[in-house]
């Protein structure tokens, strides 16, 4: 049985069916991310003044990732245009570029996650807090590269503090009251940061699978049903642009405000 309107336009909608489907899917995606953005707003305005973190994320990485995603959105569009004009080699080239850029985005994101994973806040028995990146951890001592603070509030606004010390600090395990890394469990900021960017990264990963399939085994359809293949590239491209759109808002919300 043939699925109708995979290539030709359906008269009542003016679109082929997959395109209607992807737009409905993107509408539901918008509400999914909308729910999480509204959760972010609630968490943010519910935080007591001066306790929402600033400067915890490196703006350079966020901006670099913005450029990577923008470029990948462009190469996706050009891959579709190459399909439309019947240039298979250019399609392959542009889609390969999209894949490389998307994987680069994920690598940068993993690096940022790793940085948070090895970043520890250690509460000591004398009331001080040691904050920094873990160098080593044995049964005799914990070594971090960072600084001491006496008030936890000093850890929130890193932008306001210049030239933070990065000394090597050695701590005996017996002096530690609590030791926790900057994972999603650390506070509401890291929780919403990992949730939002993690869900977005999953979308990137899903997009990579689809684009990779269309670039590799799925491209056989180019010879058998060129029009339908071009429509598949278009639909995957629309999803990819949506992923780019989400990042356009995630970057300022998480890194800049």
């Amino acid at each position: 049985m043939d699925i109708p309107y995979t290539v030709q336009v359906r008269p009542d909608t003016g679109l082929y069916n997959a395109k209607v489907g992807i737009w409905l899917f993107l509408a539901s995606e918008m509400m999914l991310f909308g729910g999480l953005f509204s959760a972010y707003i609630l968490l943010r305005v519910g935080t007591p003044p001066g306790e929402w973190p600033h400067g915890w994320l490196d703006v350079r990485f966020g901006a670099f990732n913005t450029m990577l995603l923008a470029l990948s959105a462009i190469t996706t569009l050009l891959a579709w245009v190459a399909c439309k004009v019947g240039d298979f080699r250019k399609f392959k080239f542009f889609h390969a570029c999209t894949l490389i850029l998307a994987l680069s985005f994920l690598c940068v994101k993993m690096y940022e996650y790793h940085d948070k994973w090895i970043h520890y806040e250690i509460e000591l028995k004398d009331g001080r807090i040691a904050d920094g990146h873990l160098v080593s951890r044995t049964s005799d001592e914990v070594v971090i590269e960072g600084r001491y603070v006496t008030d936890k509030k000093d850890l929130y606004d890193l932008r306001a503090q210049k030239n933070l010390p990065h000394d090597e600090i050695r701590i005996a395990p017996s002096d530690i009251v609590k030791m926790q890394n900057y994972g999603p469990w650390h506070n509401t900021f890291t929780a919403i940061y990992f949730t939002l960017t993690g869900l977005h990264a999953l979308h990137i990963l899903g997009g990579c699978c689809v684009i990779g399939y269309l670039w590799g085994p799925g491209s056989k359809m180019w010879k058998t049903d060129h029009e339908r293949f071009t429509n598949r590239v278009e639909v995957s491209g629309l999803f990819w642009h949506f992923v780019d759109l989400v990042w356009i808002f995630l970057f300022p919300v998480l890194y800049l405000t």
């Binding site: 569009l77 240039d87 250019k90 491209g237």
Partner: peptide, 11 residues
Amino acid sequence: MSESNHPVDLK
């Protein structure tokens, strides 16, 4: 990525 009738041109 529209279904418009305009011809698509790479340049």
